[in-house]
C-alpha cells in the first residue's frame, strides 16, 4: 500500500533531481535553462498530484457529480507556469546577449575570458 500510495511522488522526486542535476552540472547555458524547466515542471506535477482525488473529476461543476479534484493547486500551478515561462524567456534573452558579448555559451569559456580580464 505504501509503495502504491507514494509511487507517484517518488517519480516526481526523481524528475526534480534530474532537472536539478542538469542545472548544476551542465556547462551549456541553454541546457541549464532546459534543466531549470524540467525542475520546475516536476514541481508542478507534484502540486497537481496533491490535488488528485480518487474517483473525482475535473473541477468543473456539473449535475450529478459530487466529487471533484482539488481546484486550488491547479490555480497555483497556472500562476507558476506563467512564472516559469517568464523566467525562461528572460534567461534565454540573457543567453542570446552572452553569446553576442562572449562568442560562447559554455560556462568554462566565459569564466576563462572573465578571469583574463581581471
Amino acid at each position: 500500500m505504501m509503495i502504491l500510495g507514494l509511487y507517484n511522488y517518488w517519480i516526481v522526486v526523481a524528475l526534480m533531481m534530474i532537472g536539478l542535476y542538469i542545472v548544476i552540472a551542465q556547462g551549456n547555458l541553454v541546457k541549464k535553462i532546459v534543466g531549470l524547466n524540467i525542475f520546475q515542471t516536476s514541481v508542478f506535477i507534484f502540486y497537481i498530484s496533491l490535488s488528485k482525488v480518487d474517483g473525482g473529476t475535473a473541477p468543473i461543476l456539473a449535475e450529478g457529480i459530487s466529487l471533484y479534484s482539488n481546484p486550488l493547486p491547479h490555480v497555483l500551478i497556472l500562476t507558476a507556469i506563467v512564472v516559469s515561462l517568464a523566467t525562461t524567456a528572460l534567461g534565454l534573452a540573457l543567453v542570446v546577449r552572452i553569446k553576442e558579448a562572449y562568442g560562447s555559451i559554455e560556462e568554462e569559456k566565459i569564466q576563462m575570458k572573465d578571469d583574463q580580464e581581471c
Binding site: 491547479h74 507556469i81 525562461t88
Partner: peptide, 22 residues
C-alpha cells in the same frame, strides 16, 4: 490527473512557446 486547465496551459507554454524560444 483531472487538471484540464493546467494541461491546456502547460501544452501551450511547455510544448509551445518555451520550445519555440529555445
Amino acid at each position: 490527473m483531472d487538471a484540464v486547465d493546467v494541461a491546456f496551459t502547460e501544452a501551450s507554454v511547455g510544448a509551445g512557446i518555451s520550445t519555440l524560444l529555445m
